[in-house]
């Protein structure tokens, strides 16, 4: 908590006098890019028009294939039919999207918290590192998707097995990135902290953890997209709700428009959550080299 506060305090916690603030603003500090909203919009547009054009071309291709019926409609439905299904089935789809989103977010949050806690333990305790880290690395080779049926046997058809699967898949990138981040702290900073008589806790909160944030955030971005996979696979194996369940249903009925609509919604969950993590990164580490003068999505 303190960390977030500290990081933000840079911009909110003011210097004592108004004059100091004025001078700080007036002096053109080199490289100090406090850009306007307009400037940000321009850069966002500049960064996004190319991918949007490519996306548009793909859609045009899809539409063309469906329109000329190059492939039977039960294999590739027209974009119009997909859109129609999305609208007519919106209540049902929304409900299942919500279920999958909840599973994903819960799985991601648990993976993030447990992952960071584990990383801290590994970095601060040699014994824990020696006994646990090799196992964590080794556990990564177990195909976690294959665990899904066991989870269903153990926990039934509810939310639990999906969340657990999401956690299992998203956990690894969080631990690895957090360990790397916490270890990469400059030893000189730790020496400096020692000459200040700082406790281990203060050193962690004020130096180690904020310093690990850049790497941790990249891990979290990978983790959030994997959490979606975990939730959906969990639904494949045994569920009566969620987009994974709807996908199986639609595939059983050869309902191509519903299949495609479902797929689009799944991707949308991933995209939205990814952007949210990006946004968090932008707010937490605006100082980091990777984020300087960047716009959401432009730097990733």
């Amino acid at each position: 908590m303190t960390t977030t506060e500290d990081l933000r305090a840079d911009s909110s916690d003011g210097p004592p006098t108004a004059t100091a603030r004025a001078t700080a603003k007036d002096t053109a500090v080199p490289g100090r890019g406090r850009t306007s909203a307009w400037g940000q919009a321009v850069r966002l547009a500049d960064a996004s028009w190319r991918p949007l054009v490519v996306l548009g071309l793909l859609f045009a291709g899809w539409w063309f294939v469906a329109w000329r019926e190059l492939v039977p409609a039960y294999l590739i439905p027209s974009p119009g039919a997909v859109l129609e299904t999305m609208v007519s089935e919106r209540a049902m789809l929304l409900e299942h999207t919500w279920v999958t989103t909840v599973e994903t977010v819960l799985g991601f949050v648990i993976a993030a918290v447990v992952g960071v806690a584990t990383a801290v333990l590994l970095v601060y305790s040699k014994t824990a590192e020696k006994s646990l880290y090799p196992l964590i690395l080794f556990a990564q080779v177990i195909p976690k998707i294959a665990i899904a049926p066991i989870l269903v046997v153990w926990f039934g058809f509810g939310l639990t097995p999906k969340i657990i699967l999401a956690v299992l898949i998203a956990f690894f990138p969080v631990v690895v990135s957090a360990v790397a981040g916490l270890r990469s702290v400059d030893p000189e900073l730790l020496e400096m902290s020692a000459t200040m008589g700082a406790s281990r806790w203060r050193t962690f909160v004020k130096i180690r953890f904020p310093g690990a944030l850049p790497q941790l955030m990249s891990g979290l971005k990978v983790a959030v997209t994997l959490a979606v996979v975990g939730a959906v696979v969990g639904e494949f194996v045994g569920a009566d709700r969620g987009l994974g369940f709807v996908l199986l249903l639609a595939s059983g009925n050869l309902d191509a428009p519903l299949l495609f609509a479902d797929l689009i919604l799944m991707s949308l969950i991933g995209v939205v959550l990814f952007v949210l993590v990006e946004l968090a990164e932008h707010l937490l580490i605006p100082w980091h080299a990777s984020r300087r003068g960047s716009v959401v999505l432009a730097a990733s």
Partner: peptide, 21 residues
């Protein structure tokens, strides 16, 4: 090397000393 915290401004970097103590 100056051993400054790159996420803190000048004043906040100086005040780190006070926070730690």
């Amino acid at each position: 090397r100056s051993a400054l915290l790159e996420w803190r401004g000048v004043r906040k970097n100086i005040l780190l000393q006070a926070e730690m103590r």
